[in-house]
Design a protein around this nucleic acid. Structure first.
Lengths: 333, 333
DNA sequence: TTGAAAGCGATACCAA
DNA sequence: TTGGTATCGCTTTCAA
């Protein structure tokens, strides 16, 4: 291993100033009482000597690491990056650092990741919970630190979460379509085993029923991808050729719906509307049809989760918020 | 602060087994010689007692943290996330963790970030270098740990880097357009102060000249955004109405060029081709015109950078590679 | 108020 | 070989 520069320690400063390490420590940390003059001199000397406190040593004795563990399935998806960015914004301000690990590997890897976090003695964990990670839920709780879930909530992982009301959000999106005069509205649903996805579907159904369109309800399950959207949108058209709008539970499938609608000769948004869900980067960045979509406030979720965690660490009580997911109207509706 | 569960330590195991902490340590780390039976017993007891080594304590004495500091301007851009994912893949395998910090704040914040990394005693740094961060270059070098730059290279930050040859890549993209029969090709350039951007422009010029089209060269500088692309593409059309293709130094501006081309009544790709640069997520995820673009191997850059860093930490010599940036042909050419 | 000394949990050195 | 012991850099407790 390459050697790092030898570092200046508290003791060095103490020796230089003929003081005790304790004095230096409290002088630098604004803890304990000290003659103001002494404190000033300590700080100046520390700066002059290029003193850098050693977090490991401090953590060893204080038993807190100022690390927040972030457990996210995919590091390489901008959806998750934005959550992380929100977390970092708040945590960083308070001197906390993020310990990142993607959780997309096998079960064995998951154990390794959690073990690494325990070894690093994280003060708390922020987690994007998934059912397929239930196998490590017990381990996560066993870490004995606060856990905040983001976007979804499963009691298995703990009691705290920052989520959105997907049911309400889906209804709002539907209202928008109704206002635009649409009645024959199809829905592209995803994974029926997933709570959030079901909430979106439930929002669609509820809205249709409330507008007396219960019998016109039309939805299909698809993979949350452009291909999935293309395929299922065709089925939707075949099932009802008078369709004038598709609401998709994901932006990806919504893009597929756009392509299918165009291939059926529809003009967007004149003849046909498409609304997505998620406000992924790709929604705004469509060259031709920037997508109307339900915005998930990803950064805000991250910020709130970090804030909750920090409050918890300070011994404050917190409540799990449910955020609004506003509709972003662009060119496809 | 909430109290974590009291942890089992080496000493506890030592006491349990009537051995010295040293024995336990070497038993667990496969270091030093030990009767196989003893070793087995140690490992079994450790597991039974739920022993988790304390990284801070270890790091305090070994002087290496198994942390890699990652300095990236924006945490919330998928471009950077992919690099990070590549780094994490390699580093994680070797038990290294990433310490993340976005570098997009003011100069003061940058100092704080670097200070945090020094306090955490990172073993090495991976950095997306920018000229505006020169002010902390000295500080980064002063950390006394290896630094690997990704995507760009400035000697100010150190000697190691994983980059791509933007000049060659741009020429390849141009060759593709020539093969498709295009001759009147405009170029959207970005920030003339940036080396990489200039290399892309240079690739365009070189290709034009080599094909005897030096006098037809036509390029404008734009912001690397859809708006920038829209605006400048119009200028390009006005300057040369016989234009049949635009090569853009960014995907974002390329999308703007698509929109402009359509508004000028061009059919893509029949009448008009657009090629971008970067292969951002949005390039593949266009509903109507998935973008032909120069792919930057982002994950691979991250993987290589992590690999280099680890080699360096093992005292091995390394070379700075220059990667290929292959063209991904989609529907806009 | 200030200083001395005792750990925190692990590794590494040096006797035995 | 094996095991005691000093030590890493810091905070905290307890005397002075």
């Amino acid at each position: 291993m390459i050697k790092k520069d030898s570092k200046v320690t508290l003791k060095d400063i103490a020796r230089e100033l003929h003081l005790s390490p304790k004095a230096i420590s409290s002088g630098l940390n604004h803890t304990g009482r000290l003659a103001p003059e002494t404190r000033r001199k300590i700080q100046e000397t520390a700066r002059r000597m290029g003193y850098v406190p050693n977090a490991a040593a401090r953590s060893l004795v204080t038993h807190n690491s100022r690390f927040i563990g972030v457990l996210i399935p995919y590091l390489d998806k901008s959806f998750f990056c934005k959550i992380i960015a929100g977390i970092e914004e708040i945590a960083g301000r308070q001197g906390f650092m993020l310990l990142l690990d993607s959780f997309d590997k096998g079960d064995e890897q998951k154990h390794a990741v959690i073990s690494a976090m325990m070894q690093r003695d994280v003060d708390g964990v922020i987690l994007y919970p998934r059912e397929e990670d239930f196998c490590v839920a017990e381990e996560i709780r066993a870490m004995g630190v606060p856990v905040i879930q983001v976007m979804e909530y499963f009691p298995e992982f703990g009691e705290y979460a920052v989520t959105m009301d997907n049911f309400i959000a889906a209804q709002h999106a539907m209202e928008h379509l109704f206002e635009r005069g649409h009645r024959q509205i199809g829905f592209i649903a995803h994974n029926p085993e997933n709570y959030v996805q079901n909430e979106r579907l439930r929002g669609y159904r509820e809205a249709m029923i409330r507008h007396g369109l219960g019998s016109q309800m039309l939805f299909r399950y698809a993979k949350a991808s452009m291909e999935g959207g293309i395929e299922v949108a065709s089925e939707l058209f075949q099932a009802n050729e008078k369709l004038t709008a598709i609401f998709s539970a994901s932006d990806q499938a919504a893009l597929g719906a756009i392509r299918t609608a165009l291939s059926f000769g529809k003009r967007i948004p004149e003849d046909f509307a498409v609304v997505g869900f998620g406000d992924m980067e790709l929604a705004a960045n469509q060259a031709v049809y920037p997508l109307t979509t339900v915005a998930q406030p990803k950064e805000e979720v991250g910020r709130l989760a970090a804030g909750m965690l920090l409050s918890l660490l300070n011994g404050e009580a917190v409540q799990s918020p449910t955020l609004d997911a506003p509709l972003v109207v662009r060119r496809t509706s």
